[in-house]
Every structure is written in structure tokens, then in C-alpha cells.
Simulated assay, not measured.
Amino acid sequence: AYFQLLLLLTFFIAIGLAATPAAKARIGDLAVPEMSTFKWLSIILCTLLAGGGVFFAAGEPVYHFVVTPPAFDTEAGTAAAVPGALAQAFMHWGFLAWAVLGTLTAVVLAHAHYVKGQPLQPRTLLYPVFGERIMRGAFGGVVDALCVIAVVAGTVGPIGFLATQVSFGLHELLGWS
């Protein structure tokens, strides 16, 4: 429930900011954006779809049908569980996912890159927490490598299917999440 409330809060903050004068703020010293709005939205949409929407679009509703989400009290595997399963999947892959990916991560990375001059790498997102240690040391390289491996192992081809099945199996057999 906490994660869902956090997603909703992020979405409403993004909508609220888009309706204020803050929406006209520029990040960096560029007079003209490097990309058109159409290109930027295309990148965001394709990234989310490639990163998980295609893979989980069918798998997540089925999982929530078999294992009832915490927010619902229906019996798993019954006709009554279908609306809850679909609602949970739409919560994860609807506007809320776009709000988190398209605003939160993108704005933080854009600010760090264009204003602070930091690289467009996953380690940059952890700079506020770890400081220069993550930018210069081996720890930053490990973070970048793990992010790439997580994306490839979690969503691409047979490795993605294997990772998901192993995770589901460990959860069902041993209670690990």
C-alpha cells in the first residue's frame, strides 16, 4: 500500500507542477532543447515499453490473479479476483509508471547532467546520497554494471523469463520476495 500511495503522490505532484509556472523552467543553459517534445516522449514511451511493459503486460495480471494483491480481499484464482488483478497491473503500468519514469528520474538526471556536469549514468542518481565516492571509485562502476545486468536479466528474452520464473518460484516455495 505504501508503494502505491507513493506512486499516486508522485503522479499528482507531477500533474500539479505541470499546471504551475514551474512547468516552464529550463534545466541547463540550452536556449533550444536538443530534442523535440515528440522525440523525448517517444524515448520515454519506448524505454518503458521495452524495459517492462511488453514483458509484464501479460505476466503481471496473471500473477495478481493467482496471488491476490494486498489491497484486495478476494479469493485468488476466482472470477472475483480478475478486477483486482487488472487494477493492480494498470496501477503499475498506467500513468503512474510514466509519471515516475518521465518526470522523477528524467528530471533528476537532466539536472545532474546539464547543471552539475555529471555523466548520464545510473551512478549519478546516487550522487546525493554517496557524494564523490560513487562518481570516482569502483563503487560507481559496480552500480552502473548492476543496473545494466538488472535490466538485461530482468526483461530481455530467455534470461528475463528465467529471472522472473526463479523469483516467482523462490517466493512460492520459500516465501522470499
Rank of each mutant, 00 (worst) to 15 (best):
R136C: 11
Q121R: 15
P128C: 02
R136M: 13
A106Y: 06
R123Q: 06
R123V: 01
K116E: 07
I134Q: 07
P119T: 03
A112W: 09
T124C: 00
Y127V: 12
G140A: 04
L126Y: 00
V142E: 04
Q121L: 10
T124D: 02
H111M: 11
A138N: 14
G141I: 06
E132R: 14
T124Y: 00
P119C: 03
M135F: 00
V115C: 05
G117V: 04
G102F: 00
A112F: 09
V129I: 12
G131H: 07
G102D: 10
R136T: 13
T105L: 15
P128A: 02
G141L: 08
F139N: 13
V108Q: 05
V129C: 09
G131M: 08
H111R: 15
G102L: 09
M135K: 09
V115K: 11
Y114T: 09
A106F: 07
R123P: 05
G117W: 00
F130A: 11
L126G: 02
L101A: 15
V142D: 03
F139C: 08
T105I: 15
M135P: 07
A110W: 05
L104R: 15
V142C: 03
G117S: 01
P122H: 06
V108G: 06
G137V: 03
V108D: 03
Q118L: 14
G141E: 09
P122A: 03
T105C: 15
H111Y: 13
Y127E: 15
T124H: 01
L104G: 13
G131D: 02
L104C: 12
Y114M: 08
H111S: 11
V108W: 02
P128Y: 00
L126C: 04
T105V: 15
V115Y: 05
L120D: 07
H111D: 09
A110P: 04
L109Y: 06
R133W: 06
R133T: 13
F139Q: 12
L125S: 10
V143P: 08
V143D: 06
P122D: 01
K116P: 07
G141S: 07
P119R: 05
V143K: 05
G131Y: 01
T124F: 00
G137H: 03
F139Y: 11
A110T: 09
V108E: 11
E132D: 12
T124I: 00
H111I: 06
L120F: 07
V107H: 09
V115G: 01
L101N: 15
G137W: 02
L120C: 12
F130N: 05
P122F: 05
H113V: 11
L101E: 15
V142G: 04
A138F: 12
I134P: 04
G140H: 06
A112L: 12
R123L: 01
M135Q: 13
G137I: 06
L120P: 04
V143A: 11
L120M: 08
H113P: 03
L125Q: 12
Q118A: 14
Q118K: 14
V107I: 14
L125T: 03
Y114V: 04
L125Y: 04
P122M: 07
A110G: 03
L120Y: 11
V143Y: 09
H113N: 10
P119M: 01
F139W: 11
L101Y: 15
P122Y: 02
P128N: 05
G137K: 12
H113M: 07
Y127I: 12
Y114R: 10
Y114L: 13
A110S: 08
L104N: 14
A112T: 13
G140W: 05
I134K: 04
